[in-house]
Amino acid sequence: MHNRYSTHLLPQRERQDYWKGVIDNAYFPLELDFHNPDQFNGQLSQWQMGQLDISRLETSATCYKRVARQIDESEPYFLISIPAQEQVRFSQADRTVVCNPGAFILERSDLPYEFSYNKDNALWVIRVPVSQLRSRIREPERFLYMEFDKRRGMGNVFFSFMRNIVQQSSYTDDAAHDVLSNQLIDLLAHSMENDDRVLMSNEANLRSVHLRNIETFVRENIQRSELSPDMIACACQISTRYLHKLFKDSDQTVSQWIKELRLQSALNDIRADTGHTTLAEIAYRWGFNDQAHFCRLFKARFGCTPKEMREA
């Protein structure tokens, strides 16, 4: 099923209420704050593919808020937002992530949040029942508030497949939509699990338990500069040797994984910060106790210094 909505033929005074209804029907109830109400325009195309809803929005600058009174007991959703034109800013559970064109983020519908962009924007949004993603990967909540690359690797395969099934939706029936939507969820799960910041997730039993404990401990203590393999092993009640063995099948060491987590977190803070936090404070916040060392690592990873990233 394909639905299309647009404000372009409506009088300006009717557009805000109309768009509020469109958004509520397409996703769930939200509060909308239009940056320039007198000049707002929006259009939305929506495709229902099996248990998925895929939509493409093109709108003027807008802020979408999900508040506690709007959240009910029905099946919660994950939203995958993929900006195509301008960056978007998402805040939920005291976390903020800035997602740029070329990337995508995962969001939850059953917690209050704020989602905004300050310029005219176009973006894809996929609505997935939480149960569907949980059936593919362990604890998908681990992937919240992380920016994933859609320009290469499995992220690109996932995004390209999504666009292809949308383009061919009028030539495929409901049975095909069920098959294709399941394949798309599989690709989404695989693209997130393949990210270097996420530990291997398809391990059996005891290894899986150890990996989950390691990941939980590191994410809860990532801001501590003294975080080390010995500390992690002790906290997870395994030997340091076994800890390194668990990482042997990945393409990174324990220390490389921790460094990547820290650099990505610092990158997001630099993008999200409005200038009230110094770069030194951001470095210390994520466990870098030497700012010069932090700058060298940041430039080696992202091709520019933290200062240049903030100015950009």
Rank of each mutant, 00 (worst) to 15 (best):
A176F: 07
A176P: 10
H177I: 06
D178C: 04
V179I: 10
N182L: 11
Q183I: 09
Q183M: 06
Q183W: 08
L184F: 08
L187P: 00
L187F: 08
L188D: 12
A189D: 03
A189E: 03
H190W: 10
H190N: 11
M192C: 11
N194I: 13
D195W: 06
D195Q: 05
D195H: 03
D196V: 06
R197A: 15
V198Y: 06
S201M: 06
N202H: 11
N202R: 10
E203V: 11
E203T: 09
A204C: 04
N205R: 05
L206V: 14
L206Y: 13
L206K: 13
R207L: 13
S208H: 15
V209Y: 08
H210S: 11
H210N: 09
I214N: 00
E215H: 02
T216R: 14
T216N: 14
V218H: 03
R219L: 15
R219I: 08
E220N: 15
N221I: 06
N221G: 10
Q223F: 12
Q223P: 06
R224M: 13
S225A: 14
L227C: 14
S228P: 09
S228E: 08
P229F: 06
D230Q: 12
I232E: 01
I232G: 01
A235F: 12
A235P: 11
A235E: 15
C236K: 06
Q237Y: 07
R241I: 01
R241P: 04
R241G: 12
Y242L: 01
Y242M: 01
L243Y: 01
H244L: 01
H244Q: 02
H244C: 00
K245C: 00
L246D: 00
L246K: 00
K248N: 13
K248A: 04
D249Q: 14
D249E: 15
S250G: 07
V254K: 02
V254Q: 01
S255Q: 09
S255R: 05
S255M: 11
S255A: 09
Q256N: 03
W257V: 09
W257P: 12
I258S: 06
I258E: 12
K259S: 13
E260T: 15
L261F: 05
R262W: 08
A266S: 07
A266N: 01
L267C: 12
N268I: 06
N268C: 05
